[in-house]
Computed example of a mutant assay.
Amino acid sequence: MTMAIVVLVVSGALLIGAAWGIFGKLRPGVEGFLIAVAGGSLLVSLVTELVEPSIDESGIWTALAGLAAGAMVFAAVDYWIDEKVGGDSGGGLLAALTLDGVPENLALGVALIGAGAPEVAALAGSIFLSNLPEAAGGAREMKEGRSKAAVFGLWAATAALLSAAAIAGNLLLAGSSPHLLAVIRSFAAGAVVASLATEVFPKAYGEDRHLAGIATAVGVCLSFALGQLSGG
């Protein structure tokens, strides 16, 4: 039941966000505000849910190595997207969601083993908060020059991939070495850091420069509130 709830949230946030971006009207200011909120939430999550557990489980050097690797891989893929696809195509946000989402959801699946209702609610809320506006913004940009069905299908495939990662983490990584899980978490953290610097905050500022800082603080506050709900 717990796993089903999280899978529904992971996939639902992406699908709802993509549908909003493709078929709805999303004002640039609203989009920028929501993406900044997501960025603020991710700032807290990458420290408390990814970096700190990695350091506790495997030491500072393993965590730093994984973080650096995640950032470099994301930067390389983001560069390739800019050169081959186009920086304004929405592909950058899709890469951000995929590169930080796959390892993060692998670790999430393990974390959910034995988790109670408050922990599930907090995790599900964090995922929904961060994924929905990024999917909306990315899908809106990607529909230029593509059919709406093709864009929605691509985001649906991404939702399926991230859901599968969470299920795999829950079923296959239970009992795995703490060092392996630390590498997965720290790699995800590095991808999150790189995506925040190159995709999330620049886009939020470009769309809503006057309120981007406030929106980021709102995201930080919401993330801490969700952490308190889980007892963190």
Rank of each mutant, 00 (worst) to 15 (best):
A63E: 09
A63T: 13
A63G: 12
L64G: 15
L64Q: 04
G66L: 01
L67T: 15
L67H: 12
A68W: 02
A69I: 09
A69W: 01
A71H: 10
M72A: 13
V73A: 11
V73Y: 00
F74E: 10
F74N: 03
A75Q: 04
A75G: 11
A75I: 11
A75F: 01
A76L: 14
A76R: 11
D78T: 06
Y79V: 10
I81C: 02
E83P: 03
E83S: 12
E83C: 09
K84I: 03
K84L: 14
K84G: 01
K84M: 11
V85K: 01
V85P: 06
G86D: 06
G86N: 06
G87R: 15
D88C: 07
S89I: 12
S89F: 14
S89Y: 14
G90W: 00
G92Y: 12
G92H: 08
G92R: 13
L93M: 15
L94R: 11
L94K: 14
L94S: 09
L94T: 07
A96C: 13
A96H: 02
A96P: 01
L97Q: 00
L99A: 07
D100Y: 11
G101H: 03
V102L: 04
V102I: 12
V102N: 01
V102M: 03
P103W: 00
E104F: 08
E104R: 02
N105A: 00
N105E: 00
N105M: 10
N105H: 04
L106E: 10
L106Y: 09
L108G: 04
G109R: 05
G109M: 06
G109T: 08
G109V: 07
V110K: 07
A111E: 05
A111W: 01
A111F: 05
L112D: 02
L112W: 03
L112M: 14
G114E: 05
